[in-house]
Amino acid sequence: MAFLDILNDSLTKERGGRHGGKGHEFQRYWALCHLLQVDLEKDEYLLLLEFIEDVAVMNSDIAPDQMELFQLKKKEGSSSKWTKTTLAKPPKEGKSILAKLHDSKSIAKDETVAIAFVSNAPVELKLGSGDDPTGLTEFPASQIDAGLLTDLKSSVAKELGCDVSEIDFGNLKFIRSPLAMDDLENHATGRVSTFLATKFPDYSPRADVLCKAIYSEIKVKATSTEEAASFGDLKRIRGISKQQFSAMVALTLSRKSDSDVIDAFLASLAHEGVSYVQREAIKRAARQFVVEKAGRGSSLLSLLQNQVEKSLQGIPNNLVTSWEVANWIVEQVLAQEKGTDFSILDRNYMIAATLFWMNQ
């Protein structure tokens, strides 16, 4: 059977992460940063969340025939390390980390070109070179001291009840994540900023906006409990392709910052002859609106936005300036007979919000 035909949830050995992974900030932000790296390096790919391992990267979103798997583990404590014991000793329930990695690779052995253990903590395993592995950001299992590697294979073989010759760590690697555990969002935003500067040097888009958009998409994909019966389902439910990611980036590049939107409609008001005093009142209201919009401080805002967007579809032809249109829309919203009472909002605030959505 072709590899593409078996790419569905029947192949996945673990599904607990999709149900209980809502606090897995490290995994999600690492996936975000890895997506940036993959996009810079590959012309075609499909990143999957919670498929076989925490993260899987296929070499195509059409007909993949290779994949890389990444198991992610956060470890508490600044001096914490992963050792032979913590990697190879099975817990009271379940399998050891190395046994799980071996099992994951075995699911599609020929197509799995790399499998990695990723953590914020260093891995302390004796290397054949004598180098200190805790100072490395990445190293393959092939660099582990030969005697220790034999011991690790023997331990996993005993745990799984198979012959040691069946244990293959040939394409296993250990990766230490540089993400700042106490400030994951800001660290990831910095990585997004570097990505944008590298790929789009002539633009100055909002890195924080794109970071939030990617994280939101990853969160949705990682926590979906819908089962995938086919590769098409898998791609739709838990995948992010090159095409999808490029569309997200393009949307960010075309989006104005909040301050740019405010500056633009204030300049229009000045051109239209709106008084300085009135413009300053609108500016203050706009700043308040932006803060509340960002923090979703008022559920009334989404309702107001819906009403404004509906009103925009029926603007009378005799209205010429943005000031006239904004005031007309506010009157329409306030005059509605049913629904939410928007009169509790300051009029300047409503005009500012209306002008923002008109110019966004």
Rank of each mutant, 00 (worst) to 15 (best):
S322V: 07
N359K: 14
E159A: 13
K84R: 09
T194M: 06
E217S: 07
Q332C: 12
D151E: 15
T198H: 10
E93T: 11
L234I: 12
Q66F: 10
N59D: 15
A207Y: 00
E41I: 08
T189Q: 08
R287D: 07
Y349N: 05
K105F: 03
Q244G: 01
Q143I: 02
Y45Q: 04
W323C: 14
A121V: 03
D145N: 15
F26P: 12
Y215N: 09
I282Y: 07
Q360Y: 06
L87V: 05
K13M: 13
A146H: 10
P201K: 08
L304M: 13
Q143Y: 03
E44A: 08
R191S: 10
R176P: 09
E68I: 04
I344G: 06
V57D: 01
I262N: 04
F3K: 06
V290L: 11
G170R: 12
S129V: 06
D168N: 09
Y349T: 03
S155C: 12
A294F: 10
F70N: 07
F117I: 05
R176D: 07
D258H: 05
P91S: 09
T134S: 13
V308W: 01
R279C: 05
L334Q: 14
A197E: 13
I344V: 15
E337T: 11
R279G: 00
L69D: 08
E324D: 03
T83A: 06
L334D: 11
W328D: 08
W357L: 08
K109T: 02
V333E: 13
K95M: 09
S142N: 10
L251C: 07
A229C: 03
D208S: 04
V308Q: 04
P91K: 12
D61S: 15
G128E: 14
S96W: 05
N8D: 15
F231C: 12
R279N: 01
A31Y: 02
K221W: 05
V156F: 14
Q360G: 00
K74G: 06
A264N: 13
F289K: 11
Q305A: 06
V209R: 08
I344F: 09
P90Q: 12
S311A: 15
V330C: 13
R279K: 04
A188C: 02
E25M: 03
N317P: 00
A286S: 15
F200T: 06
L40N: 05
Q305E: 14
R191E: 14
T86P: 05
S298C: 07
A114T: 03
W328N: 08
D258C: 00
K283N: 08
E337S: 11
L334P: 02
H187T: 11
Q37Y: 05
L127V: 07
E292H: 02
L69A: 06
G130E: 13
F289I: 09
E111L: 00
A213G: 00
S241T: 01
D103F: 02
A285S: 15
K158F: 10
L48K: 00
L36Q: 05
T252D: 10
F289H: 12
S78K: 11
F139N: 04
D233H: 14
D132V: 06
L47C: 06
